[in-house]
Design a protein around this nucleic acid. Sequence first.
DNA 1: CTTTTTTGTCCGCAAAGTCGC
DNA 2: AGCGACTTTGCGGACAAAAAA
Lengths: 345, 345
Amino acid sequence: MGRTKDERRAPGMHDVARRAGVSHQTVSRVVNEMPNVRPATRARVLQAIADLGYRPNSAARALVTRRSGTIGVVTSGSMLWGPSSALLGVERAAREAGYFVSLASLGSDPAQVGSTLAHFHEQAVEGVIVIAPEASLQHVADPLLTEVPVVMIGAPPAPDSAVRTTSVDQEMGGRRATRYLIGLGHKQIHHVSGPLEWFDASLRVAGWRAELAAAGLPDGTLLVGDWTARSGYAAGVRIRELIHGRSPQAPTAVFAANDLMALGVIHALAEAGLSVPRDVSVVGFDDIPGADYFTPGLTTVRQDFEELGRRCIEILLEALRGEPSIVAPIAPQLIERASAASPRD
Amino acid sequence: MGRTKDERRAPGMHDVARRAGVSHQTVSRVVNEMPNVRPATRARVLQAIADLGYRPNSAARALVTRRSGTIGVVTSGSMLWGPSSALLGVERAAREAGYFVSLASLGSDPAQVGSTLAHFHEQAVEGVIVIAPEASLQHVADPLLTEVPVVMIGAPPAPDSAVRTTSVDQEMGGRRATRYLIGLGHKQIHHVSGPLEWFDASLRVAGWRAELAAAGLPDGTLLVGDWTARSGYAAGVRIRELIHGRSPQAPTAVFAANDLMALGVIHALAEAGLSVPRDVSVVGFDDIPGADYFTPGLTTVRQDFEELGRRCIEILLEALRGEPSIVAPIAPQLIERASAASPRD
DNA sequence: CTTTTTTGTCCGCAAAGTCGC
DNA sequence: AGCGACTTTGCGGACAAAAAA
């Protein structure tokens, strides 16, 4: 019921075979680029395929090969700049590799996690990529692990787990941002981090700490935010209070774990008459669109999500072939703009 | 080859049938909730399904039903806030409706369009949603139209085409922004638009014009940008020149077609010592994350993408059922913040 | 004994694999 | 080497057979 019956069915191998005067088997061989087909025959088949506009039916193929040709991508529900860019990169790379991409976003509801996996399982995805770098989600895909390889973006490598990972080197990002500020002469560098359950967040914290220690500087104050500009603003308010109170802990520079929070920090400082970078330097993370036109233009750390996506697929393919993967995290890049400068005193 | 052979195959209907002491057909009936199965039998089957952890094989089902249970979503390659939010909304709604979502992004390469559609065709998607509201892409999905319904987000309804559309009412958005500025007492209101090939862009222009006309105000100047902060900055530079030149066309307010461009405009103005909103009021569009912490907080027009996604799927389902759709565009909402105020003089 | 459930058999779907010629 | 016949995959549909009413 439903469909009009007169829609002529798409041609099948059989139709192609008849038209080319061969058996459907031979068509299969041609399509799958198997050897042992005479060039002349191959040409005839190819011609017939072109004539009929034949397209292999992926359902049938999936049925018999037990491979769906699709990979599942799980994203956390929040469409922040990072995750959505990573998604795009993954999609591109996947399609280039000839895979379909099935998307599923994750609500916070844990029941949804189960249904999402069931979803993928049902669809017989050949691999899963998780773009949800929260520690709490580290194991979302584990139930599928016995069946298909899982690659998780942004999670730390876990040698004991079969989950493969890849990421931009967040710690290095944190180090680069911090080192840059140190290089400018800053000695009190605070950090506004993301939620510490996010790997990215805690790694950036680690990088910040490590670099301070390496330079022999005292620890700065850690202010924990939640990636939003609002939380950055709240941190900024605390920072400006420290400064106005001439606290010994008043920073001359702030490293924010993403650009949105950096924006909030700058806003809070500006509101109190503090100028960036004259009074306080600020470095962000991500290089979101528009960061170059914040006031002032934001010095930040950029991640190459295209590359991340590509590498992610690469690793997944390696896993599918049963090969090991070389895991070299991607180096992020510091983008110098106007929000950081040498301290005044 | 490839897989280790000892992985025990997933149970099939047949296994379930044996375990429940019925035929595989009965299992099918239970699974598909067909009538004419005795409750006792149904229970036995259900039990067997649970015991074996049986999951219907979607490839086989797709093969025989000729329905894949997936819908294809095409997005333009740019992961701006709008499109990616819409994508998320669509995905949520689709999965709630029991569909898989297959994602394909579009490069600018027209050849890619073809391969994308082939991709979807191959996968036998049951419907396609296009999130690529550029006029140039209006017909990307046409080749598929004879086969499956297509819903296009943000395109104007085309009664002659089988493509269904839904959108946030962009013209109304443009009107609301403009009316708000008029209400504040502005008489020279310029507009920084997106590329006019984008429906959203030209509709916002239309709304701006219409509202100016309705208020009996002269046309403002139209500056065409490309959605980026950089282009907004360029427009801002022209605007500040007008103001400093005391041109009769100097605006007291600017309506930017997205927040990023508004950011650029503000940046250009601030650079020249012009204060927003004291010297010039600015209204944006989208309410991107962080817009509330721009300096000043950006007055903007917000679109409900969740709702958009939901409605999109709704329409697609209606199309699938052969029902007509009521197309009521979604009303966007003006968010008042600090970037617009009454003009000084 | 007829009618109405309920259940099972056979076939098709569109491709791929094995073997044999 | 180059090709075709037969079988397999997991599931749903049409119809028929069996069971219940």
